[in-house]
Design a binder for these strands. Structure first.
Ligand SMILES: [Mn+2]
Ligand SMILES: [Mn+2]
Ligand SMILES: [Zn+2]
Ligand SMILES: [Zn+2]
Lengths: 138, 138
DNA sequence: ACTACAGTTTAGAATCGTTATAAATTATAA
DNA sequence: TTATAATTTATAACGATTCTAAACTGTAGT
């Protein structure tokens, strides 16, 4: 979708210099027609395949963290062994398939609205996330 | 609460030999009047203080995993940097205080019942967990 | 365009939580 | 009491992530 020009602008507006690595990462993340979930190693593979160019792991970590801070990505907590990221930054919930290790978005209409009736003095709610773990039937 | 005898019995019934290490772990976990949340390093400190006895990290990991498999503990997914465990094995939801890194149980009446309207063929729901992240106000 | 400089990338080291290994110790069935 | 399998332990290995510091690059100012 996005042209390289768009990403250059997006990066500049975010106070990030538009390097070829960052543009490659943008293309891997934001060219897709649909939003998707990924781990860092997933993403390295996507970039190196799509851009046919090596990229340092450190650069991918740096850029993903920068994008997360800017709100271009969300992190989804699944387990303590790996970080999962999401290019869908809207509030939404997830299925997690324990067998395939795959995350699936739930649409708003798939989950009753969640109402939290308790509040902690001095604290405010930052996010409410539902994780539905799936098992193979039988 | 529990006497050493009870734990010995519990362990035996679970097919686990009642070693002094496992009994110490049981006391640390199940003597408390209330259920609680902990990380492995938390637990090592609790055991070594309470039992005034050194215990190997490997033994703690082994035993926690054995207890988890038996259903005596639950693991709560908060982030990818550390595993959190819960001595409350009932279905329930959590607040997570991002500042203090503390987990707080939500009671059933604090959260509207959650109804998932989507289903994935061949898969069944194993668990539905809500995590409410808290920030300091202002 | 040239320069200077801060920002960025990089390979590799370090760190941290966790898991594996293999030898010593211990619980228990016979 | 003895034999055996289970358990504990110190320590090594591991994998994900972060750090480091040197090389490289984008850009503001000339
Ligand atoms: Mn785990
Ligand atoms: Mn993180
Ligand atoms: Zn998602
Ligand atoms: Zn809990």
């Amino acid at each position: 979708m996005g042209s390289s020009k768009e990403y250059i602008e997006k990066l500049r507006k975010s106070g990030l210099r538009p390097t070829k690595q960052r543009i490659n990462i943008c293309e891997a993340l934001f060219d897709a027609e649909k939003t998707f979930h990924f781990t860092i190693t997933d993403l390295v593979k996507i970039i190196e395949t799509k851009a046919n160019q090596k990229i340092s792991l450190a650069t991918v970590y740096n850029t993903i963290h920068a994008f997360q801070k800017k709100g271009y990505l969300k992190e989804i907590a699944i387990n303590s062994s790996q970080a999962y990221f999401d290019t869908n930054t809207t509030d939404h919930h997830h299925f997690f398939d324990e067998k395939s290790k795959e995350l699936i978005d739930l649409k708003d209409e798939d989950v009753h609205p969640i109402k939290i009736k308790k509040n902690i003095p001095g604290k405010k709610i930052k996010s409410v996330e539902v994780l539905v773990r799936l098992d193979s039937e039988n």
